[in-house]
């Protein structure tokens, strides 16, 4: 798959830093859709007994959404804004991926009102749906 941004460059899109960075790739960004990725490394703070746990999956989705909106700021030569989760709705956790697996998260913006966006997310690991749900994200400007 083509890549829009990865590695160190991701720091231009999101304000989070180690040890809580949970996105390492932006594959694509369209009008209201994007796809982000993360390779789960063994030293990830959300790994326990060889598995990437629920808060890791949820944070990965939140930061994927941050990277999606951060990319627009980046294109306008602006720094990544701080974003906060305002609400999580119907977040289903189907399984916790294993350390070493690669996550891919597909995002769709359901609605956007001023600084608040409602995003739908599906996170896949090894082609299987690991988590899906909705999140309201507030962008501080």
């Amino acid at each position: 798959m083509e890549v829009l941004c990865q590695g160190e460059e991701i720091k231009k899109l999101i304000p989070q830093r180690a040890p809580i960075m949970q996105v390492d790739t932006l594959f694509y960004k369209k009008e209201s859709e994007a796809c982000c990725g993360l390779t789960i490394l063994p030293d990830n703070i959300f790994c326990q007994q060889g598995h990437f746990t629920e808060p890791g999956l949820i944070e990965h989705i939140a930061q994927s959404s941050a990277a999606m909106s951060g990319y627009s700021f980046f294109q306008n030569n602006q720094p990544a804004p701080l974003g906060f989760i305002a609400e999580i709705k119907k977040m289903n956790i189907y399984f916790c991926p294993k350390t070493g697996e690669k996550l891919q998260t597909k995002l769709t913006i359901v609605s956007e009102v001023e600084n608040m966006s409602l995003v739908k997310a599906e996170t896949y690991a090894g082609g299987r749906l690991a988590a899906e749900g909705q999140m309201k994200i507030f962008i501080k400007q």
Partner: peptide, 17 residues
């Protein structure tokens, strides 16, 4: 240190955990 470098805020997912 990472959430956020100049503005420490408890990560929502840490609160959930």
């Amino acid at each position: 240190q990472g959430h956020f470098p100049s503005e420490p805020i408890a990560p929502g997912v840490c609160n959930i955990q």
